[in-house]
């Protein structure tokens, strides 16, 4: 076993020649790691699932895409792989596990200057509504929403990543935003 590893390591030695495209993929992965982590967190995965997903994606990066591509294409490929991998977890598990109360508690601990208790109670209820609806959001809507509003990507970039027409992405973003807004609004109108 060890001699195989030695062969492999010898091959991967940058001094042995030009750096391979696989190594470049790993470099791209490292450069994009915080964004990929943001995507996984935005899709509601728990800490250990985020780590599992990123580990898997790093292995995929090591193996590389089927054909060698430009840096932009490789980056898109990595993001797409991450989104798809997150969707698999999202389908399997309960996502966005931390409830509004806990989120606010953590925020209060991190932020001494907080508002009056009554305001917090309202916020907790609204936060919980949004959390539940993010959890329930259709899987065609969640990735564009996260990429646009948590990763600050433009809709045409998202379209290229998800391999969809830009108009479809814009439509999905609108749908997702309106669903979250209307459900928040609806609950606000319901008698307590």
């Amino acid at each position: 076993m060890n001699e195989q590893i030695a062969d492999y390591e010898g091959y991967m030695d940058p001094t042995a020649g030009e750096r391979s495209s696989k190594l470049n993929m790993v470099d791209i992965f490292l450069a994009q790691q915080s964004r990929l982590r943001r995507i996984a967190a935005g899709m509601g995965l728990g800490a250990s699932d985020v780590e599992d997903v990123l580990q898997d994606v790093s292995i995929k990066a090591l193996k590389g895409p089927a054909n060698s591509q430009s840096k932009e294409q490789s980056t898109r490929w990595l993001i797409r792989v991450t989104v798809n991998r997150c969707l698999r977890e999202h389908r399997r598990r309960r996502t966005f596990k931390r409830h509004a109360g806990e989120i606010l508690k953590m925020r209060r601990q991190g932020d001494a200057a907080s508002g009056p208790t009554a305001e917090k109670a309202v916020q907790a209820e609204e936060l919980e509504i949004v959390r539940e609806n993010l959890q329930k959001l259709d899987e065609t809507l969640l990735p564009p929403l996260v990429l646009r509003y948590f990763c600050q990507l433009k809709s045409n970039e998202i379209a290229a990543i998800l391999d969809l027409p830009a108009s479809t992405v814009r439509g999905r973003l609108r749908d997702a935003r309106l669903i979250l807004a209307k459900r928040l609004q609806k609950r606000g109108l319901e008698p307590q």
Binding site: V26, F29, L30, Q33, S34, R37, R38, A40, A41, G42, G44, L45, G46, A47, V50, E51, L54, Q55, S58, F96, R98, I103, M106, R107, E126, L127, V130, R131, L134, L145, V146, Y149, F150, L180, L184
Partner: peptide, 19 residues
């Protein structure tokens, strides 16, 4: 509120993973 939830979830995840 969605951004609060995302940010909260992000804060729980490890900054770097072991490749």
């Amino acid at each position: 509120l969605a951004q609060v939830i995302w940010q909260d979830n992000l804060s729980k995840t490890p900054e770097t993973i072991r490749i």
